[in-house]
Design a binder for these strands. Structure first.
Lengths: 220, 220
DNA sequence: AATAGTATTTTTGTATACAAAATACAATAA
DNA sequence: TTATTGTATTTTGTATACAAAAATACTATT
């Protein structure tokens, strides 16, 4: 309503643009970013770029080596596994708390994200990823822990920047979500924690299998 | 061995100095930081300060409102509880992993931190805080998850910046540490996770009691 | 032809400069 | 007096400028 229009400073915009350059692979992993060059490309000076780099470094998207330059961080599957392990811990706590404190309206919000999908027989991967993300974000919001949301976001930046579709099959993921939601309704905080941690664990297991597979191939 | 001597840029130093100004309460919570003034005090320009602010914002130590200024974040007990909840989640995962992967030398490192204290009858609070911190950090290091360490550090900055001594009594904390270490030795990852989460939980409970106490007082 | 040393160019880090926005303040009218 | 408008001052955000460090190209020597 009377929310003041917020001034977005250049460095925020620059931050988004650089991040998408990294995600879209226009800036390659390991590549050194020439500040002047990129600044000119974006039509800004190096100052907002500097702040953007600092932010990206905090999200582990770039590495800054003093006096040497800023490099695009190489993200591989083990990194993604690490990110899922963090998510497992943070979401576990969040879900346990949600089961304790959630209100009727919170449950409604989650139900609206989960149940309508059961009616649709052929959900596309892109569609589901959107809802999946929203489901996890909503739980974080309900948990009402500012720090947990902040930390989780940092981990998610890595996960989302990795060029890889859904890890779990849609139906399996959806089933997990339903069960988690049920646990919330039953106010069973231990169950909710276990279920949501298992949900992450499945992804971790699949990623670990992928690593083993590529290792075997290279050993032939 | 052949680690290159690392150039520390000004902004890193500025970051540390500003952080300690906040922790030592020379910059008061809620206070607006006048950039030019602080820059002059530190004998630098506003550029390294800007980068320092960006970093401090990521650690939730300051809040930056575009075009309005940078403000020292007000940290209160509920924030600290949030931080302990995050720690609970992250340490839980870390401890579970440590129980699975730790080597003999890792256990030795932890033993050296725990057992010598049993011989000392009168440990000071300051001494114990040092060792306590090291114990938790070491577990994080052994867990060998870069991201989990990074995220945990962000939460710890808040906890450590809060002017408050030990939360748990020394003997109780020490006992917890011993039990956690035992779980590692037994390679019991579930037990390790439960114990370390309980360790955080105790702190949360005490902090919640403190809030209730002050609420009651103000209701009189 | 390979190497060591030197000169040149590039790039980084920080300071300064300047325009735009926010705040403080004073003057005017109700 | 209390609001309200207009003006002066402060402060911010970004661009430019410059010095120091690193990278590169080049020369001379063996």
């Amino acid at each position: 309503m009377n929310k003041p229009i917020e001034y977005t400073d250049l460095s925020s915009q620059v931050y988004s643009r650089v991040k998408s350059l990294i995600v879209s692979n226009e800036l390659k992993p390991g590549e050194k970013i020439i500040q002047e060059k990129l600044a000119e490309q974006l039509g800004v000076s190096r100052m907002p770029l500097h702040k953007a780099f600092q932010r990206l470094e905090n999200e582990l998207m770039v590495v800054n080596v003093p006096r040497r330059g800023v490099f695009v961080r190489q993200i591989d599957i083990p990194d993604i596994i690490e990110a899922f392990e963090c998510r497992k811990g943070l979401e576990g706590i969040a879900a346990a708390k949600v089961a304790k404190i959630c209100q009727e309206q919170d449950l409604n919000k989650l139900e609206e994200l989960v149940y309508p999908l059961l009616e649709i027989p052929d959900i596309t991967e892109v569609e589901y990823m959107e809802v999946d993300q929203l489901f996890h974000e909503t739980i974080m919001q309900i948990s009402d822990n500012h720090l947990i949301q902040h930390l989780n976001k940092i981990g998610n930046v890595m996960i989302r920047s990795f060029p890889m579709g859904l890890i779990l099959p849609i139906r399996e993921s959806l089933e997990d979500h339903i069960n988690i939601l049920e646990a919330f309704k039953e106010r069973d905080s231990e169950k909710a924690e276990t279920l949501i941690k298992n949900h992450s664990n499945k992804a971790i297991l699949i990623l670990e299998q992928q690593i083993n597979k590529t290792n075997e191939q290279s050993n032939e």
